[in-house]
Amino acid sequence: MIRIVLVDDHPVVRAGLRALVESQPDLAVVGEADGAEAAMTVVGNTAPDVVLMDLSLGAAAVGGAEITARLRTLPEPPEVLVLTTYDTESDILRALDAGARGYLLKDAPSEDLFAGIRATARGETVLAPTVAATLVRRTSNPAPTITEREVQVLELLSRGLGNKEMARELFVSEATVKSHLSHIYTKLGVDTRAGAVAAAIERRIIRT
């Protein structure tokens, strides 16, 4: 029996996942959580084999990638399979860098989800086709790589923040923000803030 904990901030989604997962004789949901504190407590109490992790947890300050990183520091960490609606490059890399074993999208067929949970429990890597394609494109594309800090700048840029506001958010100087923007423009082949956001969304570097 594969023991599973669900981490998602929507009770209806958790209920649906529980019903779906427990339709399989070898899968059992042993706990649920809607955020970081609850996830750490439930995992500590139930010792699951797999945590099915959403990335976006509403207004919670700590997202799924950060929770994954915390779970992976436990003495006997569970494997983490991300199940989310987001397939941007930044989300994928953050989750995998945090220690997630796999990454599936919520529109995956139920059989793919079941197979993904079983493979994750065996310690195998599981990737949705679009996620795998994104990673292949990243490694094979000769274009300069956008750094994690530049992704953060792009995300703030997409929210309409000015240089001063971005500097405050990132705890850096305005000169540093301007330097990041210059590098971003060069890497994306654009010369405006709007162009940078549009290119980043088109390349799935950031979310819409």
Rank of each mutant, 00 (worst) to 15 (best):
T130N: 06
L57H: 03
Q24E: 10
V30E: 09
L96H: 07
V29M: 04
E150D: 13
S140C: 08
M166S: 09
D191T: 12
A196Y: 01
G160H: 13
N163S: 13
R203P: 00
K187N: 13
V43D: 05
T192F: 07
A128C: 07
L157W: 02
N163L: 08
L74H: 08
D8L: 00
S173R: 11
V21L: 15
L188G: 06
R138S: 11
E22C: 11
T147C: 11
A200T: 02
L161P: 01
Q24R: 11
R18A: 12
A143K: 13
V151M: 07
T186M: 08
E89V: 04
T85H: 12
A59I: 10
E174A: 11
R118D: 03
T208R: 15
L93S: 11
E148H: 14
R94T: 03
G58T: 10
R204V: 04
A132Y: 05
A61S: 15
E32S: 09
V177F: 04
R203K: 15
S56Y: 10
L17N: 12
T186F: 11
Y185F: 15
A194P: 01
A15T: 15
I146N: 05
T125H: 12
S23N: 12
L6N: 10
E66M: 13
V80I: 07
G64Q: 03
E202Y: 10
A98V: 00
A121G: 05
F114L: 07
P144D: 13
D91R: 04
T147I: 09
I184T: 08
A69P: 03
P78H: 10
L127R: 14
P129M: 04
S110P: 00
V151G: 01
E37L: 13
R94Y: 06
E124H: 12
F114D: 01
G116C: 03
S158D: 14
R14W: 05
A199N: 06
L105Y: 08
D87K: 12
T120Q: 00
L93Y: 08
L181Q: 15
E169Q: 15
P129R: 09
E37N: 13
E111M: 11
R72H: 07
P11M: 12
A121E: 02
L71G: 07
T134G: 07
L161T: 09
L71M: 09
D34I: 05
R122P: 00
E150R: 04
A39D: 01
S173W: 10
A65Y: 01
R122C: 03
A194L: 09
R94V: 03
Y86E: 14
T120W: 00
R118I: 05
E32P: 00
G189P: 02
A98C: 09
V13M: 10
S90I: 02
I117F: 07
G195H: 08
A132C: 08
M40S: 08
A194G: 13
P78G: 11
L17R: 10
A167H: 12
E66G: 08
S90F: 06
A98K: 03
A38C: 05
V5T: 08
E169N: 14
G31T: 04
L104N: 04
L81V: 03
V50G: 00
V21G: 01
R168Y: 09
G102W: 01
G31Y: 04
V5E: 00
R3T: 14
E22W: 07
P142W: 12
E89F: 06
T68G: 02
R203N: 14
L156T: 10
